[in-house]
Computed example of a mutant assay.
Amino acid sequence: MQSKCNWVTKKVMGAVVIGAAISAAGLAQAKDWTTVTIALEGDYAPWNMTLPGGKMGGFEPELVTNLCARAQLKCNLVAQDWDGMIPGLQAGKFDVLMDAISITPDREKVIAFSKPYAATPATFAVTDTKIIAKTSPPLKLDNDARSSAPAVQALRTALKGKTIGIQSGTVYTRFINENFKDVASIRVYKTSQERDLDLSNGRIDASFDDVTYYAANADKKEAVPTVTAGPQIGGPIWGPGEGLAFRKQDADLKAKFDAAITAALADGTVKKLSEKWFKTDVTP
């Protein structure tokens, strides 16, 4: 939640995707959708995780099972590393991606998104609240780095000379680089678990990720306890929320899931599942 080679996808989207998109041009044939293959990373709890025996669990697998029933689709869930996720979608290996993928204009140039099924802020985590105060008013930021700079100045001051850990290719990577690279060292990790281990062992001073990720891991027994600190950062900077990803030509499949998401939001299913897995309501 993982080698996510570029901030443009949620985590991923590099030049290889463009080549894959071109080679997949022949896939733009209409389909009679009955069976759908959905790729999740299977390693980004509580959004999705691989359980003993290989079955998928978490917020997204439970939600998509509900969505597929509403859309009258047979859905097969498969685990896929980030490196191959977007190319696999474009090449026809999967039909849908679901992994807390933030909807952004850059990503929409390459893939299509459903309407959002969740919208979550992000924040820092530390082992020492002397670095960043534990409580702070929320920040709502837009996509303009210049207008956001004054709002994050206190964080820049607190993290000056420190080392910040971030998972590679996430929607948050660009934010950290644009706002902190000139005052702090940025260490990039393949997985959030590797980053968390370095934070707990004191090899980095702070990490940055989705608040739902930190909430789900708050009770885990670490070598050194970590706590969220500083403001929860939300707003247009992260886009409208998280959505399912499709090939652009599969508008009919997208429409089926859009209708299912609309219904699941309206009857409280998304709220119920988010409170179960995140202990908070993440409905957009």
Rank of each mutant, 00 (worst) to 15 (best):
Q2D: 04
K4C: 13
K4V: 10
N6Q: 14
V12E: 11
V16H: 10
I18G: 11
I22M: 13
G26F: 13
Q29V: 12
A30D: 11
K31S: 09
Y44P: 01
N48L: 09
M49K: 12
L51M: 15
G58K: 10
L63T: 00
N66L: 11
A69E: 13
A71S: 10
Q72V: 11
N76H: 11
Q80P: 07
W82N: 13
D83L: 15
G88S: 11
L89P: 06
Q90V: 14
A91V: 12
M98W: 12
A100V: 07
T104M: 08
P105T: 04
K115S: 10
K115W: 07
P121R: 08
T127E: 06
K134C: 06
S148Q: 07
A151I: 03
A151P: 00
V152R: 05
A154D: 03
S168N: 15
T173N: 08
N177V: 09
N177K: 10
N177F: 08
F180I: 02
S185E: 12
R187L: 03
E194M: 13
L197I: 15
S200E: 06
N201D: 13
G202R: 02
S207H: 07
D210W: 00
Y213K: 08
A218K: 14
A218C: 07
K220E: 01
K221M: 07
V224G: 04
T228C: 01
L244Y: 11
F246R: 05
Q249G: 04
Q249R: 03
A251C: 03
L253F: 05
L253I: 06
L265R: 12
A266M: 08
T269R: 07
E275D: 06
W277Y: 15
